[in-house]
């Protein structure tokens, strides 16, 4: 294995000192589940907002023995997923896969795969706005104090106002969670459908926000509870339809507009999950 995979650049793009800084931030994040550790995020060759936090985490942990899967919106073939996957294939010469079970590191934007994650896997989330309280309190100094004092009144007020106005909690994605009964955490904008998968997950979950310069983590077997009220318990989305390709009624479905007369169909957002079901049905 050549340390200079791409001429003029270090293995996995980042220089060793930057990797060291990020590695230390990740360890502290693991030790304080749900707490956002500030880190010296670097400019990456991909734009901020396009996964630079996730890419920096992946680049700091990945090695030649890893098998990498990259998904965006649940799918391996969306352009940004393709672009990030080829970035690592080029700079870190890792094997890549689309199969969830084969991957040791999975970088994701907006979804958790449908197949249950296993011990030994690491799920790396790309996070745009890591602060769950940001839209209630724009000031970083204020929100930092709120986390320090575990002062989460504003969040409960916001959820309660939702119920008063809409009769339910009107948050369908980026639904806030509480980690180990301490920190309120933003699950990156995954649909709330995926929230239960974070709880007592066997895999390590790492979250990177490059532009906002924060890293946070959920160790395996950690309690992650979606916020709710006794009389308005948390519930996930469901569809009346089944996937048009594999027939699944249990997965998260993307809606596809098929014509301009209101025609639409629903298909699995997790392309690997869907393809596997089709293969199984065809008995191959």
């Amino acid at each position: 294995m050549n340390a200079e995979a791409m001429p003029g650049y270090n293995y996995a793009y980042l220089d060793e000192q930057t990797k060291g800084m990020i590695r230390r931030a990740i360890l502290k994040a693991v030790a304080i589940p749900g707490y956002q550790v500030p880190f010296g995020s670097r400019e990456m060759p991909l734009p901020y907002g396009w996964g630079t936090g996730g890419i920096q985490i992946t680049a700091s942990i990945i090695g030649p023995d890893d098998v990498l899967k990259v998904i965006d919106q649940g799918a391996d073939d969306t352009t940004n997923a393709v672009s990030i996957r080829s970035f690592f294939a080029r700079t870190a010469q890792v094997a890549t896969t689309t199969t969830t079970e084969e991957a040791t590191v999975i970088q994701t934007r907006h979804r958790i795969p449908e197949a249950p994650l296993k011990s030994g896997q690491i799920l790396v989330y790309q996070v745009p706005i890591p602060e769950p309280l940001r839209f209630m309190e724009p000031s970083e100094s204020e929100t930092r104090t709120m986390h320090a004092l575990e002062e989460y009144g504003v969040m409960h007020v916001k959820l309660y106002e939702d119920i008063a106005e809409h009769g339910r909690i009107a948050t369908s994605y980026n639904y806030p969670v509480k980690v180990e009964d301490r920190y309120i955490m933003c699950p990156s904008p995954i649909p709330k459908f995926d929230n239960p998968k974070m709880d007592n997950c066997q895999a390590l979950q790492l979250f990177g926000a490059g532009r906002e310069k924060r890293i946070y983590a959920i160790p395996p077997h950690t309690r992650v509870k979606s916020l709710d009220f006794e009389d308005h318990p948390f519930e996930i989305q469901s569809w009346d339809e089944a996937c048009s390709i594999c027939g699944s009624r249990k997965s998260f479905l993307d809606e596809i507009i098929t014509d301009d007369h209101g025609g639409r169909m629903f298909v699995c957002s997790d392309s690997d999950f869907c393809a596997r079901r089709v293969r199984e049905q065809e008995g191959t």
């Binding site: 907002g49 630079t52 969306t78 907006h110 649909p191 479905l253």
Partner: peptide, 16 residues
């Protein structure tokens, strides 16, 4: 970067 990231797919969040 962040303004332009809005052109990336957001199917899943929008579906929700």
């Amino acid at each position: 970067g962040f303004v332009q990231h809005l052109k990336l797919p957001h199917y899943v969040d929008f579906q929700s």
